[in-house]
C-alpha cells in the first residue's frame, strides 16, 4: 500500500510521518509514535478508551484514519501535565480516587479536561453525558464524576 506523508502537531510537538492509508489514529499514536498512554479496549468504537482530542474535540481514535489527521492538532494524556505540573483534572482524579486499575483513566482525563475547559461550570448531568461513551469496569463512575466536578472548581478558582 502506498504510504502517505502527514504532518500534525501532537501534545504541542510538530511531527511528520509516513503512514499507510488503512492505519488508524490509534495505531499512529500507540505503535508509530509509541505514546502508550492512550489505550485500546475494543477497536470498534464501543469503549471510548482510545479517546483523544483532535483539534480540540474528543474523538475515538480507533475510528479515525491516520491520514485524516494531516494538518491537525492532537492532545493525548501525555500532553495534559505542563512542565511537570499536573493539570487540574489530574489532581482531582488523584484526590477523589477516580483511578483504580488506571486502564480507562487517560480517556476519562481527556474528556474531563475537554469538558471543563469548554464549560467551567458543568452540572452533574452534563458530566455524565460527556463520559457516557467511555467504559470503566472498576470505579463505578461515581468517583470519576465527582473528580470532574471538583476539577471544574479548581479551574474556576484559578
Amino acid at each position: 500500500m502506498s504510504r502517505r506523508k502527514i504532518r500534525f502537531k501532537i501534545n504541542g510537538v510538530e511531527k511528520t510521518v509516513e503512514v499507510e492509508p488503512n492505519k488508524t489514529l490509534l495505531w499512529l499514536i500507540r505503535e508509530e509514535l509509541k505514546l502508550k498512554g492512550t489505550k485500546k479496549a475494543c477497536e470498534r468504537g464501543d469503549c471510548g478508551l482510545c479517546t483523544v482530542l483532535l483539534n480540540g474535540e474528543p474523538v475515538k481514535s480507533c475510528l479515525v484514519l491516520a491520514v485524516e489527521v494531516d494538518g491537525s492538532d492532537i492532545l493525548t494524556v501525555e500532553g495534559l501535565a505542563k512542565n511537570g505540573e499536573l493539570a487540574p483534572i489530574q489532581r482531582a482524579f488523584i484526590e477523589h480516587g477516580a483511578t483504580q486499575c488506571g486502564f480507562c483513566t487517560p480517556a476519562f482525563l481527556i474528556v474531563g479536561h475537554w469538558l471543563i475547559n469548554r464549560n467551567p461550570n458543568p452540572s452533574r448531568e452534563e458530566v455524565v453525558e460527556a463520559i457516557n461513551g467511555l467504559l470503566c469496569r472498576c470505579t463505578g463512575y461515581k468517583p470519576i464524576i465527582d473528580a470532574i466536578l471538583e476539577a471544574a472548581k479548581y479551574m474556576r478558582r484559578t
Partner: peptide
Amino acid sequence: ITRIDAVEKVLGIAEY
C-alpha cells in the same frame, strides 16, 4: 491517603 500509583496513572506512564 491517595493511592501511591495514582500519579503514574494520571500521567499515562503506568506500564501495562
